[in-house]
Write a protein that binds this DNA or RNA. Structure first.
Length: 754
RNA sequence: GCCGAAGUGGCGGAAUGGCAGACGCGGCGGAUUCAAAAUCCGCUUCUCGAAAGAGAGUGUCGGUUCAAGUCCGACCUUCGGUACCA
């Protein structure tokens, strides 16, 4: 059913013009017969097998997510999302600016640029056009043709990795062409350089070296003049030592001189509009989403194309497929399932389904058609699973309206931060499309978002000392022989000679590690446990199945929540789970004691406080402190001869979300016939949560010198008198006079003496 | 470089501006045991002290306050994200 409804959603996108085809350059590896991701290509060859890779345009389906960019950005506002809100905003990358036409010198056309800084227009001393821009070959003068062509070719071969390599040096070549600065009238040279991206904005920029880092670097390399047109303080500076990228006051800008940058921006745009050479423009970094995959596994795209043929293409008759006229399948024809294939290997730029001739071609009303052989990416399913999961067995509709009303929107989404910009953005996009199509009632699917922290694995590292100042590190398997535990330092050590330590792990660092002194100053090696991302290569992966086997599922659950705050990165320590297991065992032992209906006052107070704290902590998702509170109460119950029934009952209820199995068992032992998971959350009485007498700290000049037990509402005078009866406090007050008494009832008493 | 988060014992981590280190791990001592495992009890930030207690202490430097891990300013370090988006 899932495939069917995923295809159904795709048809919604298709109907609304949000799914379209385009030729997109991809890394095609003929030897492997597959499209490679950028990371899989190194120096023009495949990472796997080192085969040649060519960059060639390939027909792909794309989803027009850019159409929704504005709404995707704007609707974030109302959501209870943490830091990831900012990340999505940056990913969408909305910017406001202007498009400006620069007339070409000696040619009829003009070169249009996008800029967010129209206020720096007078400072534009050159222009850059992307190497793959449509106009690049046209404006290049004959003398420069060979050079520009070579540069453009080299640029197109660079993988994205090369482009973004650290320490990139600005490169580029002069095209021989000039344009006119529309405001200053100056004639300025046009370069082509790969620091300008063809796919963003208009693929060309006006360069203002005095006020832009990148332009500044480029201008320095090519000795291009820099003109200051924005001044921080309004005074003129003749030499530009580094670009000033902030806002200021316009200078050397003709009629705009003296204007604050923001004012000038709107004035310049108004002026350009008036002249008919520019307009206001909003741009996004977000690109349309390539939705095709040339592989077998994936939902088939429910689209087919007309075929020109004289015979039966399934029998190898010559044919032409007209990809420009995609036809959507009918709802009633869904699902379109994958055919059986003898092998699922790639081999054709349009995917392995090309080989499924009987599946691919069909005849209808005497005409032949060919199905789309690209499939959908894994994202397709993850984009809307939360909707199908409402009503997964429904064969009639995508989901039942009642199920939707019961559950949607999602109150809380707990997921990894790595999904912020892809999965969560794609899902929001699909949801909005379904909203526009009237399928869902809410414009946003996920109200609150919390990222759980990653669980890190434990690895061991050698720290060795060479002479006085060299430290050495090498990853070490915890089972390495020769590891000894140093009780004095509470650390593990291993003896090693200098020769045993590989020189390539040398790193400069001080001798003192973690404040400890190495045992052998000359070649002592110290082993320290560190936390790293779990990975096979590091050998620090913890398999939850093994943990469950050894300690039980409850122990694992409780431990994971006990380790620390939900949203923080946490290092796994197998020894830590032992403590949690002990806690659960103790609680079980308590529940097996003879039960009593009696409840002494101390226990009553503790019980109500425990329920209160756990309730509040669960609401705030502070699971670690909720568990520690239950531990404290359990430890108290361990000390009692008989187990107070009410206390055990409520404690089991508190535990049930954390350790459901044990909670159910205790609950059943207490004589309940319905499961604890259906029971109400326990209540507490606020009156038992406040003390009548409190012990507060007594400070003298801000330093704690004793404690004193007081009635909760004791007066300041009473508090001071009680404090002065304390011997140690007296010692510090002694012959001095009390100048001031700071008394916060129930908290602190601070005597200022002098 | 930019954006974000975080720096507290041997370790994971607690602390509405009010006794820093709850709870757990590890460690030490004890009980139990023929012995061990398991379990139970006590101690466990560092320095000095037999103890009572004193001094120091939450990345660094400075500030606000009777009082700062917490608030403010500057800086350092680590982790995560991002990468020429004009």
């Amino acid at each position: 059913g899932y495939v069917r409804w995923t295809q159904w959603v795709f048809l919604k996108l298709f109907e609304r013009g949000l799914a379209f085809q385009a030729k997109i350059p991809v890394n095609w590896c003929p030897a492997l017969g597959t499209v490679l991701a950028n990371e899989e290509v190194i120096d023009g060859r495949s990472e796997r097998g080192n085969h040649p890779v060519v960059r060639q345009p390939l027909r792909q389906w794309q989803l027009r997510i850019t159409e929704y960019a504005d709404r995707l950005a704007a609707d974030l506002e109302a959501l209870d999302w943490p830091e990831s809100k900012q990340k999505q905003l940056e990913w969408i990358g909305r910017s406001e600016g202007a498009e400006v036409d620069f007339p070409l010198v000696g040619r009829p056309e003009s070169l249009t640029v996008y800029t967010t800084r129209p206020d720096t227009l007078y400072g534009a001393t050159y222009m850059v056009i992307a190497p793959d821009h449509r106009l690049t070959p046209l404006i290049t003068t004959p003398v420069h043709h060979a050079e520009v062509e070579a540069y453009a070719l080299a640029a197109s071969r660079k993988s994205d990795m090369d482009r973004t390599a650290l320490n990139r040096q600005k490169t580029g070549v002069f095209t021989g062409a000039f344009a006119k600065n529309p405001l200053s009238g100056a004639s300025i040279p046009i370069y082509t350089a790969d620091y300008v991206l063809g796919a963003y904005g208009t693929g060309a920029i006006m360069a203002v070296p005095a006020h832009d880092e990148r332009d500044f670097e480029f201008a320095q390399t090519f000795s291009i003049p820099m003109i200051e047109v924005v001044s921080a303080d309004g005074t003129l500076h003749d030499v530009v030592e580094k670009p000033f990228t902030g806002d200021g006051v316009a200078v050397r800008s003709g009629p705009f001189d003296g204007m604050p940058s923001a004012t000038m921006r709107s004035n310049v745009i108004a002026h350009l509009v008036e002249q008919g050479i520019g307009k206001k423009k909003v741009n996004y970094k977000l690109r349309d989403w390539v939705f095709s995959r040339q592989r077998y596994w994936g939902e088939p795209i429910p689209v087919y194309f007309p075929v020109e043929t004289a015979g039966d293409p399934r029998r190898g008759a010559p044919h032409t497929i007209d990809y420009s006229r995609p036809i959507a399948m009918n709802d009633s024809e869904l699902p379109l399932l994958l055919p059986e294939l003898d092998d699922y290997l790639p081999g054709d730029p349009q995917g392995p389904l090309v080989r499924a001739l009987d599946w691919r071609f069909f005849e209808r009303d005497g005409k032949w058609f060919a199905r789309e052989t690209n499939t959908m990416p894994q994202w397709a399913g993850s984009c809307w699973y939360y909707l199908r999961f409402l009503d997964p067995g429904n064969t009639e509709r995508i989901f039942d309206q009642k199920a939707y009303d019961d559950w949607m929107p999602v109150d809380l989404y707990v997921g990894g931060a790595e999904h912020t910009v892809l999965h969560l953005l794609y899902a929001r996009f699909w949801h909005k499309v379904l909203y526009d199509a009237g399928v869902v009632k809410h414009p946003e699917p996920f109200q609150k978002l919390v990222h759980q922290g990653m669980m890190l694995g434990q690895s061991f590292r050698f720290y060795a000392v060479l002479g006085d100042d060299g430290a050495v590190t090498r990853a070490l398997d915890g089972d390495d022989p020769g590891v000894v535990h140093d009780r004095e330092m509470g650390r593990y050590f291993i003896d090693a000679t200098q020769e045993q330590v590989e020189p390539r792990f040398l790193a400069a660092s001080g001798v003192a590690f973690d404040g400890g002194t190495p045992r052998h100053p000359e070649y002592g090696v110290k082993l320290v446990a560190i936390a790293e991302k779990m990975s096979k290569s590091r050998g620090n992966v913890v398999n939850p199945d093994h943990i469950v086997e050894e300690f039980g599922a409850d122990s694992l659950r409780v431990y994971e929540m006990f380790m620390g705050p939900l949203d923080q990165v946490k290092p796994w320590q197998t020894s830590g789970i032992q403590g949690v297991r002990r806690f659960l065992d103790r609680l079980y032992t308590v529940s097996k004691k003879p039960l009593t209906d009696a409840l002494d006052e101390t226990t009553t107070r503790q019980l109500h406080r425990t329920v209160k704290k756990v309730t509040e902590d669960v609401d705030a998702m502070r699971f670690n402190t909720a568990i520690s509170t239950m531990m404290i109460f359990t430890n108290h119950l361990v000390g009692l001869d008989a187990a107070p029934k009410e206390a055990v009952e409520k404690l089991a209820l508190c535990l049930s979300p954390f350790g459901p199995h044990l909670a159910e068992e205790i609950w059943a032992d207490l004589g309940h016939s319905t499961p604890i998971s259906l029971a109400d959350w326990p209540s507490y009485d606020e009156r038992w949560c406040v003390d009548d007498t409190v012990e507060i700290a007594v400070q003298v000049n801000g330093k704690v010198r004793g404690t004193v037990a007081l009635a909760r509402d004791a007066s300041a005078d009473a508090a001071r008198d009680a404090a002065l009866r304390d011997e140690n406090v007296q010692k510090f007050v002694a012959d001095k006079s009390i100048r001031k008494v700071v008394y916060v009832p129930g908290r602190i008493l601070n005597l200022i003496v002098g």
